[in-house]
Amino acid sequence: MRLRASGLQFDYGGAPVLAGVSLELREGQLLGLVGPNGAGKSTLLSCLHGGLKPSTGNVRLEGVELEQLSRREVARAIAVVPQRCEVAFPVSVEHFVGLGRFAYSRFLGGQTQADLDAVEVALERMQLERLRRRAVDQLSGGEFRRVLIAQALAQEPRIMLFDEPVQQLDLRHQLEVMEFAREFARGAGQAALIVLHDLGLAARYCDELALLHRGRIVASGAPASVLTETALGEVWNVRAAIERSPATGALQIVAISPLHEVSP
């Protein structure tokens, strides 16, 4: 499935957060969305699944505007792994993952075999079988992240949007999440977009990067063409060295020192 945003503008009632963003997520692609704090990454991600409505521009899923689809139809195609999810009344892991099936539920009638199977597959894929009865507030950060991904998987989506999924994870879990994202994106008819702060992971795992700065995409394409020393200077305000890692062959970004901000 293909997701295409064109000319997105958005504001929360003040200065524009997105000032005309166009972006395309193609089948088989893992697209990294990078940019400094406050660039509008999370806002863009919300617009991409219809969670926020842009003031102008639109998002099309296989050519159909998201506005034309019900929230359930969207949730059956696009799953979001959010940064945070505070559960007011902590349910079990199994139940929480099962909520990913809401978009398939009918007005009357409980869970179908398809629901149970999808939850089982998701639990297994995220190695959560042993934790299924645990309350979701009794999990470590890494475990809860896996539970969030499992919930998204239970939606059986074609597109997954990850909002900073490796934050607060230890090294091993970071790599696992990135490998999962890449594997998902390679699945038939599937694609994924991932918001990342860690540029090294972004460069290593993503097929392409889109660099968001002050509500605009200022560069996009192969990681090496987006992450340049000039871009790091202009967008992140740091002096940086970009090298190839002998171990992984991927770009390695070393931020050396902050640059004094040039007044605009």
Binding site: R76, P82, A88, A103
Partner: peptide, 12 residues
């Protein structure tokens, strides 16, 4: 109970 943004992303 998961909050409105999370309810929305799950299709409600």
């Amino acid at each position: 109970s998961l909050g409105e943004a999370n309810a929305d992303r799950l299709g409600l």
